[in-house]
Design a protein around this nucleic acid. Sequence first.
DNA 1: AATGCGGGGTT
DNA 2: AACCCAGCATT
Length: 371
Amino acid sequence: MTSESNKSYFGENLLRWYRKERRDLPWRRSRDPYHIWVSEIMLQQTRVDTVIPYFNRFMGRFPTLRHLAEAPEEDVLKHWEGLGYYSRARNLQSAAREVVERYEGAVPRVKAEVSTLKGVGPYTTGAILSIAYDQPEPAVDGNVMRVLSRYFCLEDDIARPATRVSMESLAQSLIPEGQAADFNQALMELGAMVCTPKSPSCPICPVGERCEGRLQGKERELPVKTKAKKARPVYRVAALIEGTGAFAGKVLVRQRPETGLLAQMWELPHIEVQDEEAWARLEEGAGSLEAALAEDGVRVRAATEVVGEAQHIFTHLVWRIKVLRASALEERFVEGSSGYRWIGPEQFEDYAWPNVFRKLLTEYFLQVQRH
DNA sequence: AATGCGGGGTT
DNA sequence: AACCCAGCATT
């Protein structure tokens, strides 16, 4: 089981493997705690390959913690566009400002101080302390739970918070003296490159010989994890409101609320409708849309002409959106209606869009350009 | 303990 | 289509 000899075998072989096979990643070229921190936030629930270009752009624009702290908030969001989980961006900047104010701009080395920073939970706390400062703290993410479940043949449900806590004790006990930074990254690297979710490459695994899960033929059943619920469909009708006169060539867009889903990003004005049947009744959708916008002081006439359709998949829900052509009854309302703005292709890139609206608007502007 | 929060790759 | 990813905050 979790015998001491198996533990030392595990650490030694894993480290030897890692020092030979480690990927050359941008954030591994630095020990700057700020770089480590930013990379760890970006890597939350996000693949390495996805993060790399974002990390490089981000560091180009915000080279130091102070640059990030002093930047306009919308600038930070724009650099996060397309990466998802946008509260990460706001929490990161908020925490950077706190570090400037309370710690003179230096990322703290004290566990209690690091873990209090916004957006920094148990995993990220351990990652920062171990990778940047080589402190013997565990950094248990999905990779690590999978690797440990298999190696020690642990059948606890990794969806339970209590399991993560016990894995943290185990992971900490495995850290070889003075090698926390490499060991923690090695564990995750093994999970990402060898001990993968569906078909682990046991024959090339540096610790496969003593992997209890594999010895018991259970490597494909582990880790045990309760299933997530299926995404719920949500039906929406959006308006593509075309400007005329001084606003010709522009469309009306609005900014989402401060918090919640896709917070502070920009979108086409739209409403949610009851169900798929209501969604199919264009006449009704157009009417509801006009009424809802009028509530915001935006008077429009929506047609029953569908000019675009798209689907946006989230973890917990699926948006299905029909876009109706619409026109403004008066264009002056922009000043009076907070959050609404006329934009053309020239301003498009000045705003942060969720993928679904980026796609719809790009298609629209391209189509207009051709005519 | 359960839920909200993106987007994309793998199988 | 299901699963999962260098998770965290809120309730």
